[in-house]
């Protein structure tokens, strides 16, 4: 089972990253269960137990709203991400799902080509399995730094 969960999560995360980096944001909420928790926070806030996120959602609907706001409401300069994901560490497995932690590095490519390391951190995940697929019941994105350059538009 460990082997299976590991590979299913690897595949799910690779798909998740491609979805964002290929600008198929409309599919991004599909990687989550409903209800779900998605939060982007910082290592300092996480360590100190401060609850508020830079982004916080507790339903798939709120994730859908994120995407439609980015598409229709918010104004920002065109840019893309490149997610580089590390190998997930399976932390615990139970009937409630599988908890894992995965390090990430995200480069941001602005429309003029300027490329920076935008964020590094780790995903703290709770996956739920049905059939051969895994959905995120919870993803806490813990950014290593407390500094966000200019804005955080696209999801991590």
């Amino acid at each position: 089972m460990v082997q299976d969960a590991f590979h299913i999560i690897m595949q799910a995360q690779a798909d998740y990253a491609r979805c964002i980096d290929d600008d198929r944001l409309e599919n991004w909420p599909d990687y989550f269960d409903d209800p779900c928790i998605y939060k982007i926070t910082t290592a300092a806030n996480h360590r100190e137990g401060l609850e508020a996120g830079i982004v916080f959602a507790n339903s798939r609907g709120m994730l859908i709203d994120r995407v439609s706001a980015l598409r229709e409401a918010n104004i920002y300069e065109r840019h893309t991400y490149r997610h580089i994901l590390g190998v997930p560490s399976i932390l615990t497995q139970s009937g409630g799902g599988v908890r894992s932690e995965t390090p990430f590095l995200v480069a941001r490519i602005m429309r003029d080509g300027e490329t920076d390391i935008f964020a590094t951190g780790r995903y703290l995940d709770l996956y739920r399995f049905s059939d051969a697929s895994a959905k995120l019941a919870e993803r806490i994105v813990v950014c290593d730094s407390s500094r966000i350059d200019t804005l955080l538009a696209l999801p991590l």
């Binding site: 910082t42 401060l50 996120g53 830079i54 407390s146 500094r147 966000i148 350059d149 200019t150 804005l151």
Partner: peptide, 11 residues
Amino acid sequence: VVLGRFTQVLP
């Protein structure tokens, strides 16, 4: 009560 802190770096 502080619920969270972030720094936004403005260009």
